Amino acid sequence: MFRTVIAALLLLSATAHADVVFGFVANRGIEQGLEDWQPIADDMSQRLGQKVRLLAVRDDKELSERFARNEIQIARSSTQTALNLVEHGNGQVFARLVLTGGKGEYRSLLLTRKGGPATLEAALSQPKRLNFASGFNGNTATYLIPQYLAFAKGNVLADQYFKSISYGNSLDNFRALVDGKADLAASSSDEYEKLQERFPKDAAKLQVIWQSPAFSYDPLVIRRDVPATTQGKIRDFFVQYGRTGAAASNEMTKLYYADQLAGFLPSTNRQLREVTDLQLFYALFRLTLNNQLAQDARKEQEKALYRRYDQLVSILGGAY
Rank of each mutant, 00 (worst) to 15 (best):
E121I: 08
L149A: 15
S170C: 10
N173W: 00
E121C: 08
A150F: 05
T142I: 07
Q160V: 07
Q147I: 04
P146H: 10
T142W: 01
F151D: 05
G135M: 05
N139T: 15
F174R: 00
F132E: 04
Y143V: 01
L149V: 14
G116R: 03
N137H: 05
S166R: 12
Y167I: 02
L124H: 08
S125G: 08
V156A: 14
P127T: 04
A123I: 05
P117S: 04
K153N: 15
Q126H: 10
L157R: 05
Y167E: 12
S170I: 05
A123F: 02
A152L: 11
L157C: 05
D159Q: 14
S164V: 09
L124R: 07
T140D: 11
T119L: 12
I145E: 01
K163W: 02
L177M: 05
L149I: 13
P117M: 03
G135L: 07
L171Q: 11
A176E: 07
A133I: 12
D159L: 13
G168N: 06
S166K: 08
L124K: 06
N155T: 06
A122E: 15
N131W: 10
A158K: 04
L177T: 01
G154V: 09
K163F: 07
S164L: 13
S134K: 09
L130F: 08
K128Q: 15
Y148T: 03
Q160C: 04
N155V: 07
P146I: 13
Q147D: 11
K163I: 02
F136L: 04
E121T: 13
L144M: 08
T140E: 10
A133S: 15
L130R: 06
A158L: 08
Q160E: 11
G116F: 00
L120N: 09
A152T: 06
I165Y: 06
L120G: 09
S125C: 10
D159P: 08
A133M: 07
F151W: 08
A158F: 09
A176S: 09
A133H: 06
Q147M: 15
T119E: 10
N137W: 05
A123S: 13
L120M: 10
K163M: 04
Q126R: 14
Q160F: 03
A141N: 07
S134N: 13
A118S: 14
G154R: 15
I165D: 02
L130Y: 09
K153E: 15
G135N: 07
Y148K: 13
S170G: 14
G135S: 08
L124P: 03
N131C: 09
Q126D: 02
